[in-house]
Design a binder for these strands. Structure first.
Lengths: 233, 233
DNA sequence: CGACTCCTTGAGCAGCTTCAATCGATGTGG
DNA sequence: CCACATCGATTGAAGCTGCTCAAGGAGTCG
């Protein structure tokens, strides 16, 4: 779950045959759909957790802030991702939408008991476990990868998850700004921009505007994401 | 759970009134105690997940490796921590002991269903959620904190969790090497060593050998872990 | 006592950040 | 319709943090 530089994001699809819309609407906590405008916040760090959400469309952003303003983007939530897992009883990130989004809400209790829906329970649990796994990949990236490797990894994951096929190539439209990418990868805006430029100049990607990325050389991107530039594995 | 530069690690104690030893020993997968010598591996990345473990004593280390040998220590597992959450069906880290350890084993199915023990189920679920939260703190550290802040954060967490009170001061004995700390914090051995020296020279900590750390100035360590050195919050 | 391992310290360097200017796209008002 | 303001992205130049390479110290074990 989440775009977290992982290998596998299949949790939602694995258990995704079921739809919350099928469950009876017992109360207003199981809202079938929540709409969220780009820039609007779904919750803030410290808010009590009442619901979990599955992103249905659009993209949301989970962030944490340090007192002095430094920001870390924890994850981008794409359709299929489950967000809002509680820490104790509170949210431990802020969450807002970077593009207009729709979300399915689940009552928090569904995570603990399933509310009589074992399949839902299993789905939420699997999502939590996948998230742990994905975050561990992210650790490796933040702790041990160079700027070029991070950007290549980021693009590689997005290409695997969200690319449109245009002719022979894959293409994605980035809903997030360079600042978001920088705060996700632990870099600065300028470094991210320079890495994009370097990928473009080396013929690995093409850019159409700053938000649309066309992947020209899949193997090279993959190689760069794993650091073959310095010493081949 | 885990030492992951978090604020709160209470999951084990919150639900910790119960003891697996009370549950009947249905089969050999619910081994009450597994012993692990320092340096021995509990599992490797890719191994199928058959059990979860609760660290009873000692300290274990969860690591991931990149092909070229770069290493990231994902977490240190201290007593009370639950380790071995599956990603899909496989372990996504290596796990070995850095000091002789004892572990309680739980069947993996306890995570999904509780195996008829709802309290155990809740405990494992809470542990997983706590882990997600702790990892998010770790993200902030790896992505946005300076070397000095990382080392101070690391020591601060250990002091909160594991300190012995010796006279007016708190003291910890580090079971892990500088290399482990470096790979946990995304730094090099040399940088970690220099940060320890700087903390010692500024009177915040004292060292007795390289493994024993005495905390002399709690407030200063805390301040440094949050970066007040550059601009006061 | 010597070999080994781990830690510490130093010097130089590289990669990323910081600071700053420019470019391009978008939107607004005259 | 165009001038201008604004915001994000890009590019350049300089500086700093942390890394690399290297040597020496401290503790341990044979």
């Amino acid at each position: 779950m989440y775009v977290t530089i992982s290998t596998d994001h299949g949790s939602a699809s694995e258990t995704g045959g079921m739809q919350i819309a099928d469950t009876p609407l017992e109360d207003n906590l199981n809202t079938p759909t929540t709409r969220l405008r780009a820039g609007s916040y779904l919750y803030f760090e410290g808010d009590p957790v009442e619901r979990l959400y599955e992103v249905a469309s659009g993209v949301v952003r989970l962030t944490r802030l340090l007192e002095d303003g430094r920001r870390q983007v924890i994850a981008f939530g794409y359709p299929g991702d489950i967000i809002g897992f509680p820490a104790g009883d509170c949210h431990h990130t802020d969450c807002d939408a970077i593009s207009d989004a729709k979300l399915h809400a689940y009552r928090r209790s569904a995570l603990d008991t399933g509310n009589g829906d074992p399949a839902l329970h299993a789905k939420l649990l699997q999502a939590a476990l996948k998230e742990i796994s994905a975050m561990q990949d992210h650790f490796m990236m933040l702790g041990r990868k160079s700027a070029a490797e991070r950007v290549a990894s980021f693009l590689s994951v997005l290409m695997d998850r969200n690319a449109d096929h245009v002719g022979a190539y894959r293409q994605i439209t980035l809903p997030m700004s360079r600042a978001d990418i920088a705060d996700f990868l632990g870099l600065t805006i300028e470094t991210v921009s320079r890495c994009f430029t370097a990928l473009r100049k080396s013929g690995i990607i093409a850019l159409d505007g700053s938000q649309t990325v066309i992947l020209l050389d899949d193997a090279a991107l993959r190689a760069q994401s794993q650091g073959q530039m310095k010493e081949a594995a």
